[in-house]
Amino acid sequence: MAVTVLLIDDDREFLDILAERLTIRGMEVTSAASGRAALDLVRAARFNVIVLDLQMPEMDGLQVLERLVALDPAQRIILLTGHATVSRGVHAMKLGAADVLEKPVDIRELVERIKTVASAPRGVGANGQAGQPSGPLQKGRGQGLLQALRGLFKSGR
């Protein structure tokens, strides 16, 4: 069965192209150009993975993330952002994000992360570490979180 993906980004052109590229790679993609539209879609349907932009007008990515997790605490969410900082990345993962990727992203890497997140038991991130959506960072999850943020540390953030 095709992996179902919900893409959320305020740039319609970016959404359309990325949706087409993921579709070419066998995924079933739905797009939302705002946090509100995304929340409506999630109330109506279930997606294997949600790929969410961190910086959006009206409701920013972290607010959307919180609401998505409130709707379904086991929802698998990958943050895709122009500028991921370590502190925001850590914050996002504490809120329940499974992974954080920085734009521009290599499509192979994105597909790999989506598949990893989608195949993990619900509530487990790309690093194979489970986490509750909120609250203090759990013991044992820190290692996975550090793995996910390794790219950000490498880029000096």
């Binding site: 740039d11 052109e13 970016f14 192209i17 990325l18 087409e20 590229r21 070419i24 910086q55 122009g82 500028h83 734009k103 521009p104 992203v105 499509i107």
Partner: peptide
């Protein structure tokens, strides 16, 4: 400069996806 660099990143992300899509279409 942080805000401007974010704008540049967004432009690069679109250019990257377009270039990638060209590659995908050629492969297809």
């Amino acid at each position: 400069t942080a805000s401007i660099s974010h704008e540049i990143k967004n432009a690069l992300a679109i250019i990257n996806e377009n270039a990638g899509l060209l590659g995908d279409l050629v492969a297809l």
